[in-house]
Nucleic acid binder design. Structure first.
Lengths: 341, 341
DNA sequence: ATACTTTTTCAAATCGATTTCAATTTTGTT
DNA sequence: AACAAAATTGAAATCGATTTGAAAAAGTAT
């Protein structure tokens, strides 16, 4: 059913029908009501591609997806979906061949030229991230989930990674720990850097020397958590506490500690960052996990919201949201054992 | 840069340029070479929306996403992305307000009418799933990830859930277990039904009575695993083994067993289904988890592939793929303790 | 050189909507 | 009732490509 046919059925012009459906004020309420009602009855719905061609609006927000099967991703998208479901806007997942810089730059260029999406949400930016410069140049509206120190204005939403880790680390220090290990995310991303800064900052401000042997970087997997925790704990001077980047990492650390006969919460303290997953909760771990918490889903919802605002004309320059992170104390952290220090 | 301008620059007509770029044979090789080269140099790229309007092809495959933040989802999509990255096709995630039947039916109708996607991948179908009937009726190409017994032909890819669980259960029976609990996925989906059939079948063919008290259904979460395992184990006649629907469920069962001082692999055996996640591996659990395994990512890749074939004209009638599921024996299963039976 | 293919190119129609500008109808005022 | 102002409607242009059918150019055979 095309507009032309539909209009003919109603005995109206295409113009009037189109206006009635798009809510323009120049059409009488009685006509509009009739048009809307008949549209539902006859099942008329504008062809998206025609609308898109004419208006230049696509009705889709792009999210670039790397190969790594990030479990965060699904949560973030679920959050976006929550906001977008009422908006007639969908999410375009753009597969990226290689998480290589060049490939991604090309991808953005193509996206901008081909008008597949109205805006892009970019993840895990790096310090001085040239992708941001490119997006800015291309004029394609975008929002960064995370931040970059690049000298180009960009709208972003980020959580206070530095503050979160600083607090977590400080808390461990307050409990008497001095050998605190850090199993961070992959090197390169700003968030990993911020966490590193928070960690170092906390130690330094308490006059504790930083031991590079206690710092590791890697994917957010159980495997990484286990491997590094195990190797750290087998050092001559093992850590008495861990700060970890994710729940999965924490699972690995738990496993490593157990495998060495160490009790979490007494022999070894653990704090991890919790993105709040419906399927795995910090409170349910044994012992329950002390965590810095921030909902990934909520971030997705808000990012979608901000992008809509951006598209509605809000200035990108004023969009900067830094979300505080809660520290939830549970059983996995405890005072350092006096014979350990 | 529009086709018109670009053609003018080259001194050719729009027709010839369009043909040259789309690889039609009616254009001389020397002209084509020039056009292609100049397109790259001048950065001309056809406007997708115009192409889509004209050709009726959208270049996107739709995946309906429920609210539940399924961790499988990201893996499946990562798999799809792997296949689609080389095609010029993207993934459209369609948010669904409520996982209600009616709402979803409406959604499919809207999708078909508005031509947002070329095809749809549908997840977790139910027995006699009317959504399949609807999609069939609408003429929107689709692929079902899973199966339904509905009396409408539909292309599908599924794993052998029944066989997997039958084997898992039989294995436990071979180890001497007779009180075997089943923590299945949410009731309603065909896969849950198939698993249930496999479970019951294995018990029955060994002459073991089915105890409804040992069967539970719920989301794939640590929480569900814990709660049911705990309540089962506290029964007067507790199970000595568990068959579980997911790794997360298994985590919960492990936790429940531990909380009751039971050793996994000796006091209680556990087999779970493993969708193969990069961040959490069955082999790394302690003790390592015996699992029925099938890669969700591979399924995503193959589903994307099949949809492309569908769009290329392959008959939906002949697309039925049933993937076998491996059973990987590890430490979480062992012979029943003789004092238990 | 002519007639006839074959190859290459192009003008114009088309896809299905939105929107400008003009025409018509309705309402309000005197 | 006459006229202006406001409200409503519609014809035609437009978005940027693809594709049909016709024409021009090149190639081949007589």
């Amino acid at each position: 059913m095309k507009l032309k046919d539909f209009a003919k059925q109603l005995g109206l012009s295409k113009t009037t029908v189109s206006r009635a459906l798009s809510g323009y004020p120049e059409v009488s309420e009685v006509t509009r009501a009739r048009v809307v009602e008949e549209a539902v009855r006859l099942g008329y719905r504008p062809n998206v591609n025609a609308v898109r061609l004419k208006t230049g609006r696509v009705g889709a927000i792009g999210v670039v997806m790397g190969r790594a099967g990030e479990f965060h991703f699904a949560e973030f998208m679920a959050g976006m979906a929550e906001r977008l479901v009422t908006e007639d806007t969908d999410i375009l997942v753009i597969p990226m061949a290689d998480p290589e810089y060049d490939a991604e730059m090309q991808l953005y260029k193509r996206l901008a030229e081909s008008q597949r999406v109205d805006a892009i949400i970019m993840h895990s930016p790096r310090p001085n991230d040239q992708r941001i410069a490119l997006l800015h140049e291309l004029g394609l509206p975008f929002l960064v989930h995370g931040r970059s120190d690049i000298d180009v204005p960009h709208p972003w939403l980020d959580i206070d990674n530095e503050g979160a880790v600083r607090r977590a680390t400080s808390h461990l220090i307050d409990l008497g720990h001095t050998r605190i290990a850090m199993i961070n995310g992959r090197q390169g991303a700003t968030y990993a850097l911020h966490r590193d800064i928070g960690y170092r900052g906390a130690l330094q401000s308490h006059g504790i020397e930083i031991d590079p042997q206690l710092i590791a970087n890697g994917n957010f997997t159980d495997e990484i958590g286990f491997r590094f925790a195990r190797s750290f704990l087998e050092q001559p001077k093992p850590p008495t506490a861990f700060v970890a980047g994710s729940m999965m990492t924490a699972l690995g650390i738990y496993r490593a500690a157990r495998s060495l006969g160490l009790q979490i919460g007494t022999d070894v303290s653990v704090i991890a960052h919790d993105d709040v997953f419906p399927y795995l909760t910090a409170d349910n771990m044994v012992p329950s996990l002390t965590a810095t918490r921030s909902s990934m889903r909520a971030a997705g919802t808000r990012c979608a919201d901000l992008v809509l605002q951006l598209l509605a004309g809000r200035s990108p320059l004023e969009i900067h949201e830094l979300w505080p992170v809660e520290l939830i104390l549970r059983e996995s952290t405890g005072p350092v054992r006096t014979d350990q220090t």
